[in-house]
Nucleic acid binder design. Structure first.
Lengths: 145, 145
DNA sequence: GCTTGACCTTCCAATGATGGGAAGGCCTAT
DNA sequence: ATAGGCCTTCCCATCATTGGAAGGTCAAGC
């Protein structure tokens, strides 16, 4: 199977398949005499595994660990569970951060008349009037920095 | 005031201050005879504005729009409110995505014994046993792709 | 005056995951 | 044989941020 077909069946773009090979996440694919990469059903299954894990928000590095456990016949389910729970904890942390942002913004937007007048508590807050808003978000880290 | 001091007072790193200047988010700072950038209290206020907006999850591009409104004496508060609400909507979308991921992972982790045995529904799901889990996360986009 | 250390400057590179595109080779159907 | 659709490698861009190297400047102490 060519890379394009493997991409179609796995939902991982050909670009990304080459990238994953290059970075060592997946082993080097076989090659035809003319240099084309070839893939088997097992390869496609692995790629779908990766895509599914990506959809669940795992970093590629964590996917590498998951793949290692997947290939390890003698793995302990506890190891997998731990990775999953770390992922859950990380996601929950981000969710809390974002909820805090939403709360602050919502509070500010509700205080904003939203009409033709220039006065706006949102800008006033951004300007640094720290006492006017919930302190939770003020010194907290941005979620994507 | 030197860039280091401006960084300290604004909470924006010197590196990022130079970057924001380079990309046009902020105007070019004044310079001393020897080439050092100089900053005023107003500049620091603008930097704190930027930092606060970053903490609230705004993209730098959106911060540019906010800054334009901040500088515009005749702005309408409705314009600011609209930006804030777009930001809220974007954050809420991401939160929903992540909550869906957490729900799926939680479901899988609960079905995992977490002991020494190798059997693990988490890996089984990642492998592609699509019928075993909530469909919401299966075809949805990853939140950070 | 000279040294030292802390600051500043510019430039270059890397991150992580992905997409875009160019230049060139291969394969298959007509 | 030719067209067009696939494949290959290589380079570049994204976005916000950090790191470092090489070199200039400032202020304090001797």
């Amino acid at each position: 199977m060519n890379i394009g077909e493997a991409a179609k069946h796995s939902g991982v773009s050909a670009k990304m398949i080459r990238y994953y090979e290059q970075t060592g996440l997946i082993p080097s694919a076989g090659r035809t005499a003319s240099g084309y990469r070839t893939y088997t059903g097992t390869d496609v299954q692995m790629l779908r595994f990766i895509r599914r894990a990506r959809d669940l928000g795992f970093q590629v590095e964590a996917i590498g660990e998951l793949l290692a456990l997947w290939r390890d016949r003698s793995r302990h389910s506890a190891d997998v569970k731990q990775l999953a729970q770390a992922q859950i904890a990380g996601l929950r942390r981000k969710i809390v951060e974002m909820e805090s942002m939403v709360a602050t913004l919502d509070h500010l937007a509700q205080g904003c008349s939203g009409d033709d007048r220039p006065d706006c508590p949102i800008l006033a807050d951004l300007e640094g009037e720290e006492s006017l808003v919930a302190p939770a978000c003020h010194s907290g880290p941005g979620f994507n920095r």
